[in-house]
Design a protein around this nucleic acid. Sequence first.
DNA 1: GAGAGAATTCCGCAATCTGGAAATGTGCTT
DNA 2: AAGCACATTTCCAGATTGCGGAATTCTCTC
Lengths: 257, 257
Amino acid sequence: MRMAEAPKGAAERLAYLLPFIASGPARFGLGDLAERAGLPQSSVHRLLKVMLRFGLVERGTGQSYRPGRELQRMASQIVSRFDLVRSARPMLQQLVDSWQETAVLCTYSPVSRKAIIADVVHTPHPLRYAVERDGEITLPWGSLGRAVLAYLPRGEQEAIIRQSNAGPLTGRPRSKRAELDAALESIRAEGVSRYYDPQIDIAGIAGPIFGPEGEILGCVGVTMPSRRYQLHLADDLASAVGKVARDLTELASMQGA
Amino acid sequence: MRMAEAPKGAAERLAYLLPFIASGPARFGLGDLAERAGLPQSSVHRLLKVMLRFGLVERGTGQSYRPGRELQRMASQIVSRFDLVRSARPMLQQLVDSWQETAVLCTYSPVSRKAIIADVVHTPHPLRYAVERDGEITLPWGSLGRAVLAYLPRGEQEAIIRQSNAGPLTGRPRSKRAELDAALESIRAEGVSRYYDPQIDIAGIAGPIFGPEGEILGCVGVTMPSRRYQLHLADDLASAVGKVARDLTELASMQGA
DNA sequence: GAGAGAATTCCGCAATCTGGAAATGTGCTT
DNA sequence: AAGCACATTTCCAGATTGCGGAATTCTCTC
């Protein structure tokens, strides 16, 4: 969907294709992949031959490819050391049980410079937002995005802010830079990101999750309509969310992450 | 550890390095990786720069690299569709509860042409074999290996048998080819692999697990000292193991695997 | 602050990659 | 069965990109 992207060089292109395969359908054709990736078929075919040899893809029935068992194996191996999603599940559930609001886990994707919704436990309330797994979250908006943005290295922050200003309008004027900086600073000060915007009727609280070397992995948070936000004891909710985030950070540091 | 392996070309080398990173330590140096992979440092460095750009690796504190968040993310995504290891866990536990013998889950790695122990639940008996996660299993021996080998395409079977004959001695003469073929045939006939060798005091029963397109993913099985094997009602055990294997196959087909 | 070891850059040669187009293969329809 | 449409695979010549030993720079350690 993005344009003006066409990595040069075999290694770059292989790395570039990997996510298309990992997140693509269980069966796909050469043409599909070439189109999705925006690369010439003959080039994709050459790379696919390499991946075939290394088990990253395999041939399916008829003329089709599928993600390879070696890829599966590697994925299991990586995840088996530390599975953030699995570790977080019961905690999300716990948050929903206690507060009756939707709990979300996001992981940060350094490449797309977005946070991706890795897991959700929905509120029992009938009024709730359509938060779905694998959804993308742009970092400068909302409690979830900002909980991540606040802890990114300065340079990356800059790039993201510039990029999302240039990006498509989101229905409201971009917040002023100074305002955003202040918000990020206060997130770092409190260790929890709060967001409350009655105009678009959304509110939330989120806490950052770090890896063993202090790099930000993602965040946990709860989101709700801003009207319901007012009914909660926000500070209690914030400390509950903060605790979950810290617990996950600790887990990530202990296990290999 | 293997020699005479040095993939030519950037794409091949990138694919070649991936598993070293995925299964390597949480922190590693350029030199480490270069040595483990048997490639010149400058080449590895060039590839690492590419991976860096794609988030497959990241810089750690000081001079070190670590597996990247993009790699984690992809792994989670792949695993979230269908996690054989997670699905199998309760079934392994169940087998151990019922039979008091060590239950094992293996996944087949097409590249190394071996099965890899993905999970184990140990028997409560004090006398048990040292079966450990991530351990490698050569296919021509044992119930586990053969449960996989029996369902591999003919060509791959040939390669594996030839390769392991040429390989290091394993303490006993290689079984005759005709004998092995007969064993594999009977495994296919029964749908379960039985192995019983009083000489080295080991026995086991294993069943194959298939993916959505009929490709073999791995196997589940129980292993034990051959003396204990005689005490069990082998047919009941075999049907229990077979059921677990079929259930996992069905799960793998329903979910995206 | 000096030294050891690691990571990074350099550079000329050439092997590997590139992509349009042609050839081959596969599955579906008549 | 035969033919058709579409997807995959091969081909090719030009040149971009990869290659790796050696020199340089950087970073921890003592």
